Simulated scan of single mutants.
Amino acid sequence: MKAIVCSKFGTPDTLRYKEIENPLPNKCEVLITVKACSVNFPDTLIIQGKYQFRPEFPFSPGSDVAGIVEKVGENVKHFNVGDEVVGFIPFGGFAEKAIVKVKDCFPKPKGMSMVNASAFLLAYGTSYHALKDRAKLKEGETVLILGASGGVGLTALELAKLMGAKVIAAASTQDKLDLCKQYGADEVINYTEESLKDKVKELTNGKGVDVIYDPVGGHFSELALRAIAWKGRHLVIGFANGEIPKIPINLTLLKGASIVGVFWGAFVQKESKKSLKNIQQLLTWFVKGDLKPHIDRTYSLENALKALEDMMQRRVKGKIVIDMEL
């Protein structure tokens, strides 16, 4: 099978598109023919050796997959060859075939395209876990979303609105903010042109925001935290800015606020029953038409290196996807 292969840590140009052996599932796994795999920011970190874990070489990046079951392990009872599925894997998705643990594999809803399916689990799963389980978001609260036009940012925007919150979307360009408005943002902030802290204070009449959804990091994290409301929750999603912030911890004391870590991958493994309920709810909302993934662009598998480069350079709005049919 063809795959994008990482044989040493580095930038996308160090990866290779090549022929490798087909993987084989163990007794609790399924082998799927991959039809689509979305590109997520952690993919750019894992190939550089900057992620929470380091796979053994060689490996393929890619964690959000959609495809058709080709083989099932002997203990797999509720999937059959030919079933259309979505799955989450730590790596291995940028390939024509991939192994998925049965507990991380789900039936693809009818009417959901393979491209949309591959763009769904990680982004929406992360945002729903963040807002529901970690922030315990209440109807009527105000959420500030940094990097709001990105892959997880837009899903957080959709879900926060669906959960009854007011949303302030922050992004770096006007076209990104325009997209946020299309997805229901109540207010927008261009944080390259306006003071993030001052604008949040202005938009909330001095109260501050109840929840900060922060996949960006860098100096924006502290600026946002300085505009948090009493008993607010600052959700740490990731560091797309490339810098892990050093926060003056006295800010949490002054506001009675909490800094809350969000690691959806660990949640899926450690609290699988809760994770399953979340995923079922998200898929139900999709079927009802309440959630609509924004697919910015698609790429062929051979052109996946360009997709990773676009992600690293923050040239993406919403999601980008490797489409095996191209």
Rank of each mutant, 00 (worst) to 15 (best):
A3I: 00
I4Y: 07
T14I: 14
L15M: 14
E21G: 01
P23I: 01
P23C: 07
L24E: 15
I32F: 06
A36D: 05
N40P: 04
P42E: 04
G49K: 05
Y51H: 04
P58L: 06
F59R: 09
P61Y: 07
G62D: 07
S63F: 07
A66Q: 05
A66W: 08
K77Q: 14
G82E: 13
G87H: 06
F88S: 09
A95C: 02
E96I: 02
K97R: 10
K103Q: 15
D104R: 08
F106E: 03
P109M: 13
G111K: 06
S113H: 04
S113R: 02
M114N: 10
N116P: 00
L122G: 01
Y124N: 07
Y124K: 09
Y128M: 05
L131K: 12
A135D: 04
K136L: 11
E139A: 12
E139G: 06
E141V: 03
I145Q: 12
L146M: 07
G147K: 13
G147W: 11
G153E: 07
T155K: 03
E158F: 11
A160R: 02
A165F: 05
Q174W: 01
L177F: 04
C180V: 06
D186F: 13
D186Q: 14
E193Y: 00
S195L: 03
L203M: 09
V209Y: 10
V211S: 00
Y213A: 04
G218K: 01
F220K: 09
L223P: 00
L223Q: 15
A224S: 04
L225I: 08
R226H: 10
R233K: 11
V236T: 11
V236F: 02
K246G: 03
K246L: 12
P248S: 11
L251C: 03
L251D: 05
T252Y: 13
V262M: 09
V268S: 12
V268K: 15
Q269T: 13
K270N: 14
E271W: 10
K273M: 06
K274P: 00
S275N: 14
S275L: 04
K277E: 15
L283S: 00
T284F: 08
W285D: 13
K288I: 03
D290V: 02
P293C: 07
P293Y: 12
H294F: 15
D296C: 13
Y299K: 11
E302F: 01
A307P: 00
L308T: 00
D310S: 12
R315F: 12
R315D: 14
V316R: 06
G318H: 08
I320Y: 09
I320M: 08
V321W: 01
E325C: 10
